[in-house]
Structures are given as structure tokens and as C-alpha cells.
Amino acid sequence: MEIVYSLEEIDAVAKQIIQNTTNNIILFDAQMGTGKTTLIKALLKNLGVTDATSSPTFSIVNEHVTAENKTFYHFDLYRLNSEEEAYDFGIEEYLYSDHFCFIEWPEKASNLLPKNHTKITIETLPNGKRKLFIKN
């Protein structure tokens, strides 16, 4: 699936992603500044998260819980120097918890990720819009 969107359309895009995702592990592949975190914030909002959301750049993982007690994990693996660091903080416990995991910079722990995942690739277009590809 391919979607071209502007920032004003991000909530509608988040809804489309939710409807078209078949896995609870969602990897985000994009250059820095492309809008991975902004899109994940929109996804969390549309999934019922009402608390403040931000990039877990320094904490590596943020946990969000909805009023219905659904748990979502948002990872930013950018600062990892090795897959061993991901293993050390217990990434596998999160990945196999049956909760949604949104993962920025997944290539930093690619050998630890489940084979069943959804990959979202985002590109910035010359007109400032984004082109998103979803692969389940």
C-alpha cells in the first residue's frame, strides 16, 4: 500500500495504517527528520492514548497505556551502538509481549526482530509531502 500525504492529513493516514496493519510489531524506516515520531504520535492518539507522547530518543522506549488498559511501546533505537545493548535492556520481552511496538531505527536491532512485522517506509517528496509504503 502506498499513501501520499501532508502533515494536515496525518490523522487520516494513521487511521489507514491501523486498518491495514496485520502485525503488532511496526518498523519505521526513514531518514532523520522525515516524520517517524510525528506519525507514531498520530497512531497512538488514534489508538486511544491520551497521555503526552514524545520521542524516546534518550530513554530508548516509552510505554503508553490507554484508558482501556491497552499497552503500546514506542522505541527509538537510534542511540544503540550494538544489538547487544538492545538485548541487554530486554527488547525481546517487549517484542513478544503481544502489545503493539512501534520501532524507529529498527536496523539497529534487525537480528532480534520477529520475522512477522509490518514495515513502514517514509520518503520526503520535493513538495514537502510524504510518501509512505506499508509492507505486511
Rank of each mutant, 00 (worst) to 15 (best):
G33A: 00
F58G: 04
T118C: 14
N136Y: 03
P56D: 05
S82M: 02
H99C: 14
H64G: 06
E104F: 03
Y96F: 02
L7C: 14
S54A: 08
F72L: 02
L113M: 02
I3W: 11
Q31N: 15
Y94D: 00
G35M: 02
I10F: 11
F72I: 05
N20F: 13
T50I: 12
T22I: 09
L132R: 07
T57H: 01
A86M: 11
K45V: 13
H64K: 02
A109R: 06
M32C: 14
L112D: 05
G90I: 03
T50F: 11
L43C: 04
Y87Q: 12
I25P: 07
V4F: 15
F28H: 10
G48M: 09
P114W: 09
E83T: 04
K45L: 15
L95M: 00
H117R: 15
E8I: 15
K15C: 10
V65H: 01
R79H: 02
S82C: 07
L125A: 10
G33K: 04
M1P: 10
A14H: 07
V49N: 03
T53H: 13
H99Y: 14
K36A: 08
Q31M: 13
T57S: 11
L7I: 15
K108I: 12
Y78D: 08
E104C: 09
T71L: 02
E68G: 09
T37P: 04
N24H: 09
F72S: 09
P106A: 08
E92N: 04
N136S: 06
G35Q: 01
S110D: 11
L7P: 11
F102N: 00
D29G: 11
E84P: 05
E104W: 03
H117Y: 15
V49H: 07
G90F: 01
A86N: 12
E8D: 15
V4R: 15
I103H: 00
R130D: 09
E68A: 10
P56L: 05
A30R: 01
I25Y: 10
N62D: 01
E93V: 08
K131S: 04
I40P: 01
E68L: 14
D98S: 13
I134V: 12
F89V: 04
N136R: 01
F28Y: 03
D51Q: 15
V65C: 08
E93P: 06
H117M: 14
E123M: 09
I91M: 10
N20H: 14
L44S: 00
K15H: 09
E92G: 03
T57W: 05
F100A: 08
I18Q: 04
S54M: 07
K45H: 03
T53E: 02
C101I: 12
I120D: 06
A86H: 05
Y5V: 13
F89W: 10
L80K: 05
L132W: 01
E104A: 05
I18E: 00
T71F: 03
L95R: 00
T37I: 01
A12F: 13
Y87N: 11
T53P: 05
E83C: 11
H74A: 03
E63S: 13
L27D: 09
S97H: 02
T38G: 04
Y87E: 13
L132G: 00
H99P: 07
K15N: 15
A52N: 14
F72N: 06
N46E: 15
N136V: 02
L125I: 09
I40V: 03
